[in-house]
């Protein structure tokens, strides 16, 4: 769980950087619908930024299959763990 938390912290940092207008909470349940700036284009940028930051690699269909940040964090944890 703490590993998940560590990843989520890093992801949160990227989200705050990328979606500078968003000041709501970032949790495992956050979805693209919660963040106004989070469109398909920025989604791809977010994914690639997370890949670079965490040293992981997502497939394109995998990127589209995440239902919320939790899915993403668990997938990243699986790769780095």
């Amino acid at each position: 769980m703490s590993e998940h938390q560590a990843i989520l912290d890093k992801v949160t940092e990227i989200i705050r950087d990328l979606f500078d207008e968003y000041d709501g909470p970032v949790t495992m349940e956050t979805t693209a619908n919660d963040v106004a700036q989070w469109d398909s284009l920025s989604h791809v940028r977010l994914m690639v930024m997370i890949e670079m930051e965490l040293g992981v690699h997502f497939g394109t269909s995998e990127m589209q299959s995440f239902k919320n940040l939790g899915d993403l964090v668990r997938a990243a944890a699986k790769q780095s763990g």
Partner: peptide, 28 residues
């Protein structure tokens, strides 16, 4: 189509630290 192309373009431009304009051309 769009997402795989955009992912490839974004990856390429971010890994190669392209300037914003060519990066946008490739990823968008």
């Amino acid at each position: 189509l769009y997402t795989p192309l955009s992912v490839a373009g974004t990856r390429y431009s971010m890994f190669n630290r392209l300037a914003p304009v060519p990066a946008h051309l490739l990823s968008l």
